[in-house]
Nucleic acid binder design. Structure first.
Lengths: 114, 114
DNA sequence: TTACTATATAATAATTTACTTATATATTCA
DNA sequence: TGAATATATAAGTAAATTATTATATAGTAA
């Protein structure tokens, strides 16, 4: 019982640590209501494709997101059955929408819709 | 407007990063409903006094906690008027209570009550 | 005053993180 | 098939993080 609550809070700390990076936090907020592919994130964050891929890998390894291949694109979305999804959802809910980033993508003609 | 939401989410990421460490997260959960002093944290976490002091400094620098000196002890408590206190409160609410750590302290006769 | 306790800070070492470039793999399309 | 596009991974690096030990400061109590 005591061990359980310790483990629980330590696992929560790992989730919070993943969300405690501005790139990953904005990614998660975008994925809250959208599906995005890697090349969109590259365009949004203006960092190397490798860097984006590594952030997504961390989120994937922690089961926070899932990937789905559609042709040459791999779409990422929230994995809603995460053990701490309630926590994640509550956090995301309180952050300002970042959807303007997707509208900017659209205006540049770089939004990929499935 | 766009700049604001970017800054808001980046500041949220900094808060989450602070909470994304198991020592600080447990500290914050304890402080949610208690007041604690440095020596209690040292006993609870079994790390150097310096390490505890540095964690508390980070929380203090970010205005997540405040300190209050009573004689030779300095008591820490949550600073509830933080810009993102709602976010913090929502997160803490979803974590399992860590008060057993204080009960253990009491049993060892090491709980300092003001 | 002197000794003791509680806390903060400086300096440092080990580890982790977040990026980069280079390269590999998978898919599409001419 | 071969070129182009999308993605992942390996290797390397600079900066950040978290601990330590040593030392300074502040309060208490003999």
């Amino acid at each position: 019982m005591m061990i359980t609550t310790t483990m629980e809070i330590e696992k929560s700390a790992l989730v919070l640590k993943l969300l405690g990076d501005k790139t990953r936090l904005i990614m998660m907020k975008l994925l809250e209501k959208n599906t995005c592919c890697v090349c969109e994130f590259v365009e949004i964050f203006q960092v190397s494709q490798s860097s984006i891929s590594q952030h997504l890998r961390k989120l994937r390894d922690a089961d926070l997101v899932k990937e789905e291949r559609h042709g040459q694109w791999i779409y990422y979305s929230l994995l809603k059955d995460h053990e701490y999804f309630n926590l994640i959802e509550q956090i995301l809910k309180q952050l300002p929408s970042q959807d303007y980033l997707l509208r900017e993508l659209e205006q540049k003609g770089m939004r990929i819709s499935c």
